[in-house]
Structures are given as C-alpha cells and as structure tokens.
Write a protein that binds this DNA or RNA. Structure first.
Lengths: 221, 221
DNA sequence: CATATGCTCAAGTTATCACTTGAATACTTG
DNA sequence: CAAGTATTCAAGTGATAACTTGAGCATATG
C-alpha cells in the first residue's frame, strides 16, 4: 500500500463537498438557489437567519465549490455552481427519504394535513399537458417563475390565487406546483382550490426536478 | 409564512445524511463498501484507523441511514443501505471533480504518473467486449471480485499479475479495472503490463459505476 | 466454564462549527 | 464627496466532532 497521506487528502477534499451540505441552513440555501439566484438578504430572510450568518454560510458553500456569486451594484447574487449541485442535493434527499425514518414524520409535520392533496407524477402531467386537459399553476413567488417555469404554466403566487380562484374552470382539473416535493405552496394552493369546489392536485416534484428530467420549460426573456 | 421550526428540522434531517459523508474517513468507508460488505476490522485496516474509531464512524453512518450491519459469529459486517447511497457518493465525487480545483491536484498526487495510462470509457469497453477483442482484468482483491464483477472479467489481484503477465497475449489489448476512478490498482496494473511490452489501458470508472449503469455483471454464487 | 476474538461503549482532549455582535468595505445616490 | 445600503470580516461563546485509551459485551472455542 502506498503512503496514506495523499489518499486521505483526496477523500477529505471530496468530503468537504458533502460537509458543505451537512448543515440544515446550508441545505436550505442550496434548495432555494435551485430555483433561482438570489441576493444575500433575500436568502437570509428565506432561511430566517441573520445576514452575517447567512453570508458566512454562503462563503462555506462557495469555498466548497457549490455556489458562485456575482455582484450587481451593492448586492451580491449567489447561484448554484451548476446543475450537478442540484443533482447532488436531489441525491441527498433521495437517500434521506428512503433511509431516514425521521424525514417522513417531519415532512408530514411540516406539510400539514395532506388528505385530499393527491400528488401527480411528472409523466402523468406531461401526458395531460400534451392533451391540453389541465390548467397548470406555478404558485412560487413571481421572480422564481420568471427565472424559469414549466412550459404552459401560469404564474399564480399564493397571494394572487385567492382572487384568481373564481375565474378558473370548474370542469378542468387544476395542477399546482412549486419548488420541490417539500414545498408547502402547492399543498396550500390545492387546499384553497378544493375548498372552493375546484378539482385540484399537486405535482409531486417541483420545477428544478422537472427541468433536470429534460421536460419542457420556458424562461422569460 | 408558517412557523419555521418544522421546516428547519426537515432540512436538518436531510443535512444529517450529507454530514455523515462529510468526513474523509467516512467517505472512504462508503467508497469501500460500494465494492462489497466488510467487517469492522477489515474496514479499519483499509482506512488506516483504529478499530474503535472505525466502529464509531460506522455508527455515525448507520445512524444517518447510509449503512446497515449484520452479525456473523463474532464479526459484524457492514454494507451500504442501498444503491442510492452509492449514487449519492457518486454525485458527491462528481461535484468535487468539477468544482473543487484541489481534487484534480490531489488525484494526480495520489495516482502518480499517469502518462501512458490511457483511460477507456464504459461504452467503448462494452462494444469491444461484445466484439471479443479485449482481455479484461479485475485487479481488485479477490473477495471483491467474488462479490460481483464485470461480465467476462478475470480476477487478477495485483500480487498475481506479475506471474500472469507472461501468459497474456501480446496481440490483444488488455483492459484493467478496479474500484473506481481514483483506485490505484488499475493504474499500477497498466504500468506493470506496459513495462512488459503489453498493450494495456484502464477503464475510467470502477465496478460499482459499471453496475449502476446497468451494464452486464456476474456474481459468483 | 474459562479464554480469546471482534466489536462497542464511555470518558477525556483538542479542534472545529454555528451563531452573535460590532466594525469594516464596496458600491450607489444625493 | 458625504450619507446610506448591502455585504463581508473579525472576535467571542457554547456546542459538537474526531480521535485516543481502556473497559465492557457478545460470540465462538478449547
């Protein structure tokens, strides 16, 4: 066996990538940035942390190569370094869902009452979009919709949904989607629409997963 | 916005998976277990750590759901919880290779002089195996070969290679593979064979990647 | 049933991490 | 060029992690 030091160093370097994702707050950041780039302050607000702390987390992520930044005026915008990072995060979630019992309990707790929030797979949505027999709503905040959305979706942030609900057809099924499988917006939207007597379901994944699967997307220009 | 506590807890739970991989020694263990299950003592030897420390690392991995164990007599054998874990590890390596500059430097340092160690892709090997115009050598330790190997490969641990080298055909190309892209055995084998005047190359990945790609494998029964 | 083997547990040390607070920079705008 | 905003840096604190050492358990064997 060769001297073990370079081997250790190589594994340490790989592990540094995993370690960067090994904090709940940083995982939350990566999950956010999988939607669209954001400024430090926006990120801090979303993850309920101080700006200073958020900045330090972002620098840990940057040092590990997971995110990059660009400055625009006084703001600094962070984005994922590449789609591979989103794939890594998806792999983490996949293992967590399958092997960490705690996750499903916590997910139920976070997502609330899911009775009546029937999920729809990407394949099924794909087919039904082709047939044109669903109304597809993107219930994320509008900036994320602008950064990219499922082809054929209409931007309907939760705040706007209440008003729009009356204008939606009662005959066609409505499908809502948002950031990912654990995003609450789509669940909330479905509950609101069903309370109004509409046929609504949620997509079981979010925009990043849809895009990575190579399914059709649109980006506002 | 909903109360942030369950959300944090959910991300923390996901992050715990990444954190388990966030130590070089544990990453090394996962990389090893992607080949075959092993006892604690074997793992400790391979990663050059004390048995006690290794046992504790294994328990961290087990708590995060990445590995499972079974007892056989006085020994406890650990294995990956599922193929998803191997995929997660592959995703980590992928991001590290692309975004951590340090990794390629360390890899060169660890693998040594790679001039003349021409890599071969899985696709190419696949085609050439079908045509039958290569000799395929599995240069991992034999227990790993027994736990599973590329269909058509011959077990040739490095210790045995020296003796076998004289019996190999000079006309056909020889392909060596081992544990993964950073495994030194295949490089060592190629150098040894080329020094003997044989045409040798290495597969650019290892057995676990080949298997996960759905390519043909054999498992000794 | 005593001994050996293989693994786990517990305690202790040193280093690293997450977060806070307050100050320092970088850029923009009046 | 002064004042304001967004971000980063630096220092400090309490908690957690990695590794060591030595003891404790479980299973097999004489």
């Amino acid at each position: 066996m060769r001297n073990g030091a370079p081997k250790s160093a190589l594994f340490d370097a790989h592990a540094s990538v995993a370690q960067a994702l090994g904090s709940g707050r940083r995982a939350e950041i990566v999950d956010l940035l999988a939607q669209a780039e954001r400024s430090v302050e926006e990120i801090a607000t979303e993850i309920s942390q101080s700006v200073a702390n958020t900045s330090q987390h972002l620098q840990v992520l940057a040092r590990a190569g997971l995110v990059r930044s660009r400055r625009d005026g006084t703001r600094v915008y962070y984005r994922l370094a590449s789609d591979r990072v989103a794939e890594l995060w998806a792999a983490v979630r996949d293992v967590a869902v399958r092997h960490v019992a705690e996750v499903s309990v916590l997910a139920d707790e976070y997502l609330g009452d899911r009775r009546g929030v029937e999920p729809l797979s990407s394949e099924e949505l794909s087919e039904r979009l082709a047939r044109g027999d669903v109304v597809l709503l993107d219930v994320r905040p509008e900036p994320e919709f602008l950064a990219g959305h499922i082809a054929g979706a209409r931007s309907t942030p939760l705040e706007a949904l209440d008003e729009l609900a009356g204008k939606l057809p009662k005959s066609r099924e409505i499908v809502a989607y948002c950031r990912g499988p654990y995003c609450v917006y789509a669940d909330d939207a479905v509950r609101l629409l069903r309370a109004r007597g509409l046929k609504a379901r949620r997509l079981d994944v979010g925009y990043p997963e849809w895009r990575r699967a190579g399914l059709p997307v649109e980006i506002a220009s």
